[in-house]
Structure formats: structure tokens, C-alpha cells
Design a protein around this nucleic acid. Structure first.
Lengths: 121, 121
DNA sequence: TTAATATATGAACAGATGAACATATGTTGA
DNA sequence: TCAACATATGTTCATCTGTTCATATATTAA
């Protein structure tokens, strides 16, 4: 990046600071992955599914009951969670039991929950 | 919830488990707030802005340069971040410097980043 | 006051997304 | 084999979201 490229000319740019930040920032691909992950959590239906199976494995039918959603909606969201490798599943006859892939998800969510609970300020 | 309300009749429902999960799950409002928070993080532009100001306050112009975005886009996203109380700002003449509201955001993001970096598995 | 600069905001448009419906797949037992 | 059940998936539609363009506001200096 050259000095002349700055929109604000020599008036505003904090050139050194920018260079510095550029160094420390995760690369583009990581940021996109990160955004994708948060996108999964950004829907309340998916979040409710995740919270439901945080300590217990549940079958699709249980999730429908618990969350009062129709089966199609639940299955579609579970597919998204499967694709993003956030949940694992186990088949038992006709039923499929879902649970969280690992503890990381739980940590991320409970951290965020803390932030919420500390009040809007 | 009554037994008869179950879609799967007496075949599938893990009644006790469901009751149990219901107890431990955060209430609706909290889940919605949580989803809203993740929604903020779910856009790569906003995420890049957040990551940029994670340790340094930056003016809008700096952010435009650093992220190679036009000024309108940055301002719009900053408004969203302001509204959700995730950033604070400080005016200095014509410029406005933005920084993170508190350390929680950083923690949530770095935790998620760890998850990403551990590989897709 | 006027011009230049930094930021904010309104409107419009393209693309993304979640829910619902219909239907398909797969499993079990008769 | 067939019927019942549990789950998955394709499609459509209404809604939401991010970006861009144009313009407004605010601050500074001449």
C-alpha cells in the first residue's frame, strides 16, 4: 500500500497504525470461515437446536416436539449443522440422534450468553 | 406439554429427556438476543471491522483504506455495530474514532477462531 | 461565507435465507 | 410384499440484508 493510495491524502491516514493492524489480522479465508460459523449461530431456530442437544442427544422427533417446529424445518436446519460439522449423528433404526460435535461450540455460546446476561449497558 | 401432544405418539418420545432439556435451556428472549449478537458477527465486512479495531482505535477513513471498502459501506456497518453496543466512538474534529466496547467481543471471536483453526475435521 | 474534508444517512436493487409444502428415501414389522 | 413411521430433500415464496449511489450533516480553514 502506497501513501498516495489513501483516500484522505496526507490529512487523516494513520499509516503506521494501519500497517500494524494489517499484520495482526487473520487472513481473508479465516475471516470468511469465521463469519460462516457465526452465521450458523445467528438463526434462533438453529440456536435452539444447538442448545437443546448441548448435553443430551435427541432424535429429530424430539426436537420437533421440544421446539414446536415442523419436521421439515428441523431436518433442513440439521442438514446445515451437519454440513458445517457442528453436530454429529447416530442412527438407531428409523430414528436419528443428534448431538454436538465437540465442546468448542458450547464454550463459544456460553461465552456469548455471558455477554448478553451482563446486560445491554 | 401433554403426552398426547407428541407427534410420534408413544413410539418415539423421550418425554423425560425433553422435560429435562426444557428446564435447562435459556428462555426465548435470551436466545433471540444471542442470535442477534451472532448475526452481527456473521458478516465478513463487520467481522473485518471488528478485528481491525480489536486493539487499536481507528477512524472511518483508516477502516476504508485498510479494508478497501467505500466509505458508505463502512459507515453503514459501523452504525449497526453502534446500535448493537459492540463499539464505542470518539469524535476528534472531523474524524470519528471507533474502538471495541469491551473485551467480551474479543474473547468470543478468538474462541471461535480457535475452533476454525483446529481444522474442519 | 465558501470550499474542502470526514462521516452519516436514505433509497433502491440484487442476492441470500428460512419456512412451508409436497414428495422421496429408508427402516421396521405384519 | 405392503403399510406405517422417521427422516431427508427439492422447490417456491416472502422477507431480510449488504452494497451502492446520491445526498445530507458537520467540522475546519481560508
Amino acid at each position: 500500500m502506497k501513501m498516495e493510495d489513501f483516500v484522505c491524502g496526507e490529512k487523516c491516514p494513520h499509516y503506521k497504525v494501519i500497517k500494524d493492524v494489517e499484520m495482526k489480522t487473520p487472513d481473508e479465508e479465516e475471516i470468511l470461515d469465521l463469519a460462516d460459523m457465526f452465521k450458523i449461530f445467528s438463526d434462533s431456530t438453529r440456536l435452539r437446536i444447538i442448545l437443546a442437544i448441548i448435553n443430551t442427544e435427541l432424535c429429530v422427533c424430539d426436537l420437533c416436539e421440544l421446539l414446536n417446529l415442523n419436521q421439515s424445518t428441523v431436518s433442513h436446519q440439521l442438514q446445515i449443522l451437519r454440513t458445517s460439522k457442528l453436530v454429529k449423528y447416530r442412527k438407531e433404526g428409523k430414528q436419528v440422534f443428534y448431538s454436538l460435535q465437540d465442546g468448542h461450540v458450547e464454550q463459544i455460546i456460553s461465552q456469548a450468553l455471558e455477554h448478553i446476561q451482563e446486560g445491554g449497558r
